[in-house]
């Protein structure tokens, strides 16, 4: 565990040194522009627009980072053979994987927190103050982070047995499918085919259901998000990450390094 922490810390350091956090500049500019323009163009819904725009951007930037950095976490180390010297240290392969996962999760958490602060600033500009009901926005940010953790674990899983390009496609594909999980579940009901219904049902439960984490609209309208949902989503993300990381460990522990 401690060794996983060492790997995580180095992964975070790599992201920082690779100037990954520069995306924050882009986000900050977006928020400033939005805060300035939103009053001019969106009559009556400035406070809603700033939140939907901010949360959508946080989510999108996070997803892009999670997928593209995530698929490189393991494959880049294998490709460049930096992994050889590391695995010759008393590090188990699962510790390496866990560390890589935690390192990117930490990177994303810092990045998302910075963006959330920017969003709060923009909201403050638009609203003139921050209110208690704005906490819904914070919950939405937390949900985005949970979602990103699942995406990272999936990217890690795929990159343990296939090329970075295919891993990117698989992860992105699974993400989109996961967003549509409720629709997939409904397919059987629409067609009325019992067999298809059962297959669609089972499949939709196996998929990571990213729709669970989408409360952007509710947050934009400052609707309180039930504490129960927060707890369930947290648990859901934890379990899903555990499944993906277990799968990744099973594959990676048997893998011959080129």
């Amino acid at each position: 565990m401690k060794r996983a922490g060492i790997v995580a810390w180095n992964t975070f350091r790599e992201a920082v040194r690779d100037r990954v956090l520069y995306n924050l500049v882009f986000f900050a500019l977006l928020m400033i522009a939005a805060a300035l323009l939103v009053g001019q163009i969106s009559i009556g819904i400035e406070q809603i627009v700033i939140v939907t725009l901010g949360l959508s951007a946080i989510s999108l930037i996070g997803i892009l980072m999670a997928v593209f950095i995530g698929v490189g976490l393991v494959s880049k180390e294998m490709e460049k053979r930096t992994l050889y010297a590391l695995l010759a240290k008393p590090v188990r392969r699962w510790e390496f994987l866990l560390g890589k996962f935690a390192g990117l999760a930490l990177t994303l958490a810092v990045n998302t927190a910075a963006m959330a602060t920017g969003l709060a600033g923009a909201m403050w500009l638009v609203q003139g103050s921050l209110r208690a009901e704005d906490a819904a926005v914070l919950v939405a940010v937390y949900f985005i982070l949970l979602k990103l953790a699942i995406v990272v674990s999936l990217a890690l899983l795929f990159s343990c047995f296939t090329t970075p390009l295919l891993s990117t496609l698989f992860t992105a594909g699974l993400y989109v499918a996961g967003v549509f999980a409720p629709e997939i579940r409904a397919i059987g009901k629409v067609t009325g085919n019992a067999a298809l219904d059962a297959v669609a049902m089972g499949f939709s439960y196996l998929l990571p259901n990213f729709d669970n984490f989408n409360v952007i609209a509710a947050a934009a309208h400052r609707r309180a998000i039930p504490g129960m949902l927060v707890a369930q989503n947290t648990l859901y993300a934890a379990v899903y990450c555990a499944i993906a990381l277990t799968g990744a460990t099973m594959i990676f522990s048997r893998r011959n390094l080129k």
Binding site: Y205, L206, N209, D211, N212, V215, A218, R223, I225, P226, M228, L229, Q232, N233, L235, Y236, V239, Y240, A242, I243, T246
Partner: peptide
Amino acid sequence: GFASVWRLQRGIDRQLAEMH
């Protein structure tokens, strides 16, 4: 893991159904 995902999803569905 998948068994608990299944159970959790049902709980989450209930919560979300209440929300929208």
